[in-house]
Design a protein around this nucleic acid. Structure first.
Lengths: 215, 215
DNA sequence: ACTTGTCCTGTCATGCCGTCAGCTTACCGA
DNA sequence: TCGGTAAGCTGACGGCATGACAGGACAAGT
């Protein structure tokens, strides 16, 4: 689209500028994973990046703006999640494998981007359209593919016709996202990682196909 | 447990004190539902309550402390959610009704406490034990009851024995919580409320019993 | 009226926010 | 080599939230 990285006051950023900008983003990302979002201050990010607060404001309108930038970057990477669903079979053993790989891919991605996804989730839940859009971008690919799968199974009469494919797909994806962001919580709960994945895969398989998986 | 409401510096609060304290909590709760958590300032809450910031700090160590207070209150009310699961049947039409009522009760509760639950969720995801504990308190009742249901069905051979009851129950509850906190999101997605509930109920029923519901 | 204990606020030091003017650095054409 | 120009960075400042304190206002009992 633009291809041009610009500062807040409209200048185009050169090599050096882009480097500092990126360094600020990196430091912000790191801070988000070590301290509560509410407590992340511009001055801390700037200090950590070895620069001054004023420099931060040259590249981002505020902390939220910078977070959006990181999230956007992550969303691009998240597009790869589509591959976990599209063109996959949902019958027999292959169906079980699809479910397993979907769960595994999802949890891995979520854990990797843990900190930033928390903030995106909060922003989306608070009604901020920009965050909501990014959250969509990541979840949409998976949700749409799943929706298609359900529709197809529905047309074959394997799934009840009175359920909404989009609602089921959306709910399952929401489940995966929620469980992923509380993975540590489940551990405290006495649920081990190893138990979690097959359980999730089973639920996903059940939800999509209406049948128990054959393993 | 305590029964005594105390100020930060240890005094016991009288009638008037408790009134202002409550007013501050109410105003904070209201602010949380209209502006982002990150932007909620003590001075705004105080102004809204017709008092001074200093008064706020007499009753709460900081904004987070006050939020915890509200959340604690909500958790008590949330204990009633247990009734949605315990002593309910999971077979035949009664099973479908159980699933429906569970979903409905959950969504209603979540929508009612929308704003505060967002913050609790964030705090828990960020690893704050106090928030995590409250989140547990609300979800635990439901999760434990569901876990028992799955165990029972498992012992009757109606559910595969190699899945973890706790993991399934936890995942389903997480799904309900996640969908509930993004209810508005689903609407934008083109999924209507009316479609959402039966879909969720179906997934819950499938997850718990392993069978399609008979409606 | 006086005392006691609760309740609230004025005020202040501290620290972060967000902006500006102005300085330094890098690039480029002559 | 040498300015010229735009990019890049920072010190400094007014403004505001924070959090602490001492002291004034108020209600209730004596």
């Amino acid at each position: 689209m633009t291809g041009q990285v610009r500062t807040v006051d409209g200048r185009v950023a050169g090599r050096r500028g882009q480097a500092t900008r990126q360094k600020l983003l990196d430091c912000l990302g790191e801070m988000l994973s070590t301290s509560p979002y509410r407590d992340v201050k511009v001055i801390d990010v700037a200090r950590k990046a070895g620069t001054s607060p004023a420099t931060f404001y040259q590249y981002f309108p505020d902390v939220e703006g910078a977070v959006l930038e990181i999230a956007e970057e992550m969303a691009k990477e998240g597009a790869a999640l589509t591959g976990l669903v599209s063109e996959r079979a949902w019958t027999g053993k292959a169906g079980w494998q699809t479910a397993e790989e979907l769960v595994d891919g999802f949890l891995t991605f979520w854990r990797k981007h843990d900190a930033i996804l928390r903030v995106v989730d909060l922003g989306a839940a608070e009604g901020d359209k920009r965050f909501y859009k990014i959250r969509m971008k990541i979840l949409n690919a998976v949700t749409n593919s799943l929706t298609d799968s359900v529709k197809e199974l529905q047309s074959k009469g394997k799934v009840d016709k009175d359920i909404s494919p989009a609602a089921v797909a959306g709910s399952l994806v929401a489940m995966l996202a929620a469980v992923a962001s509380h993975q540590k919580g489940f551990q405290t709960w006495g649920v081990k990682q190893a138990e979690l994945k097959p359980s999730l895969a089973t639920i996903v398989h059940l939800g999509i196909t209406g049948r128990k998986p054959t393993k």
